[in-house]
Design a protein around this nucleic acid. Sequence first.
RNA 1: GCCAAUGUAGCUCAGUUGGUAGAGCAGCGCAUUCGUAAUGCGCAGGUCUGGGGUUCGAGUCCCCACAUUGGCUCCA
Length: 646
Amino acid sequence: MNIRFPDGSSHVFEDGMTALDIAQTISPRLAKATLAARIDGKRQDAFAPIHGDHDLQLLTFADEDGRWAFRHTAAHMLAQAVKRIHPEAKLAIGPAIENGFYYDFDTPETFTPEDLDAIEKEMAKIAEEDNKLERFELPRDEAIAYVKELGEDYKVELIEDLPEDAVISFYRQGDFVDLCAGPHVQSTAKVKNVKLMNVAGAYWRGSEKNKMLQRIYGTAFEKRNELDEYVARIEEAKKRDHNKLGRELELFTTVDIIGQGLPILLPKGARVIQLLQRFVEDEEQRRGYQLTKTPFMAKRDLYKISGHWDHYRDGMFIMGDPDDEEAEVFALRPMTCPFQFMAYLNRSRSYRDLPLRYNETSTLFRNESSGEMHGLIRVRQFTISEGHLAVAPDQVEEEFKGCLDLAKFMITTLGFEDDVSYRFSKWDENNTEKYIGSKESWEKTQDMMRTILNDLGVVYTEADGEAAFYGPKLDIQIRNVHGKEDTLITIQIDFQLAERFGMTYTDRDGEKKYPIVIHRTSIGCYERTLALLIEKYAGALPTWIAPVQVKLLAMTDRTHEHTIHLQRLLEQAGFRVESDLRNEKIGFKIREAQVQKIPYMLIIGDKEAESGAVAVRSRKGGDLGTMPFDEFIAKLRAEVDARSHD
RNA sequence: GCCAAUGUAGCUCAGUUGGUAGAGCAGCGCAUUCGUAAUGCGCAGGUCUGGGGUUCGAGUCCCCACAUUGGCUCCA
């Protein structure tokens, strides 16, 4: 048989050789590293015999698909270990995921940390046993009978849901067999470095209507040191957790009796958000936005028009009995759109008014489920850099581009440009009752958005079922220290709400037309942005948004007066400054300012009081030596004006 | 909401089989006036998240509530 490799070269091998055999002919080292194969573009077992002419790529741990096979085998070993220790456990699904794998089990008792230790040990034993993986296929009826006999009810359901003509394959490793499409590595002996991370609840098939299963998360690496490094990296990342750092640095706190998802922004956190907000509002003004300030609540009648009453009611805080049609029922706003639409409706509009750009620093209230709350990232009251644009059809692309440019400007300024990804969030055409509008209008809008994204060269992934109820979105996503992805910024195109609200403009031809509405944020939610800034910079916020930029450290009582004098001068120059006049050693004061991650410390001793110069220390560079006070101010101003974030 | 873990001084954490609550840091006082990441001594600080129960006795055991944290999106 003729085998062609990715580099274009071709070689003839004996028919029936496996990818591993072929790797062996190239080098034993390569054979050892080979975990799976890609044959004519499809992932396959490296231990399966190959017949005929094919393209072949050998997959190692360096390849995503190689890692996938490796960790998927680890998942099977996890299931094998669990079945040995807890034979009553029923198996659900167990895929490889980014950075690891999991397996879902239905067990009468939940797993404890001790159980995990025992299971991990059993997995090590299974690796020792060097069980060879073996694939076999069964016809549908036999497959169902087989898993029924094993008592695996969930597997029965999985097979029944497979298409009639699907190939139903199983993998055997020693005393364990699992329904699986593969591929796998050739032996459990390959998977020696495993760590089970945690147990979590997870609904069968991800639906809360179904039973909650026990999910065990784990990870596996080819080499011991890679596993150790990964675990250390996770520990390291947790040190940047905004939930910990943000509280330590006194940026925010929470209080039981106020309630879940309702953080208190302490003076330093409030300062950072104020600085961001001023920056955003000024930039938006520069870009032709008009600021509105609209009410935090409205009668339910408004939400009935917008569709929130029918499609977002669970997410709203409602005051009064929502079912009492006679009563005046108010609800806190979960979004700003209907309010800014009322501003648009204030007078009749002409095509000359378009594009009309409204912005608002808008506080919103959403009744998130209790388990969804997370630090400052997911809260029940938050403030966003909201905005709505009413545009004519021929302005959509240009205005969308403007929104995207603004978003990118914000992302770059904050230093997030390497951390974000773009997601084109579409509706779920199998679940249309979640949305307003017709299939045609959704498809039209989504096609338009896709065209714009492609025209602008945006690199994005598509996601079904992630749209807003009124239209598709471009979501700019970012990950927190736990690797969990959240939306930072969003830009949405809406063909529907203008009509619902009777928002029109008179076009050149005298006809009344509905504008297209773009919903967008420029920096997103301030609380979330603060959280991600804390994690990005490990609390050492860039100087231009640092709540305290300079700390003056008086050496002795003799220099108090001079220290206060310098503080006044810096404050008058517009900087945020604190002085430490306590009767403590200078090393102690430095340590404290350093722990608080204050960008600059000025040490004011007798020498400085005498000369008028200042001894400068930076949180990053340590002792920078002595410089004239004016030079320090110039340096600081340059850094702030540049909004640098190195 | 669901599955779990956690909740002791402002913070970080000890607290034995159920026997009357402890440390470090922070705070306050005194001494020290010091040159680039922790000066020393002393003082004060607690409804052990809240409520109920078991018990002669509960921080500890049980139940409920609240809050914090991880997961519930990755589909054989």
